[in-house]
């Protein structure tokens, strides 16, 4: 069987109060990797936010890896960046 084509999409920046979200796939399941100063302290809350946003797309997207490089992004910003990155990933940018 031919391996599926690798895809990647990004949204956000590494500026202060922002984060850079990179979505790649296909991988097995849904993998979330968070790096940055706040990663250790707020990891659980950030993962919850990421999952909520992805689940909002319906069909509970899997087979993706979500990488977040955080530079102090608030919950609002993290959610917006994940949504934009995933919309780009599935070719639905600007929904």
């Amino acid at each position: 069987m031919e391996p599926a084509d690798l895809k990647a999409a990004q949204a956000g920046t590494l500026e202060s109060m922002d984060c850079l979200v990179t979505i790649t796939g296909p991988v097995e399941g849904r993998v979330i990797e968070i790096s940055g100063n706040a990663a250790a302290r707020f990891k659980t809350a950030m993962e919850r936010r990421i999952n909520d946003v992805l689940d909002g797309f319906g069909n509970s997207p899997t087979d993706i890896k979500v990488g977040v490089q955080d530079n102090g992004a608030l919950d609002i910003v993290l959610g917006a960046r994940v949504e934009a990155a995933y919309a780009r990933y599935i070719g639905r940018a600007g929904r």
Binding site: I76, V77, A80, A84, A87, R88, G94
Partner: peptide, 15 residues
């Protein structure tokens, strides 16, 4: 434009 629109929407909604 797409990413900014989403960010602005969320900031307007909850900022």
């Amino acid at each position: 434009k797409d990413s900014a629109r989403i960010l602005v929407r969320e900031v307007l909604r909850r900022g």
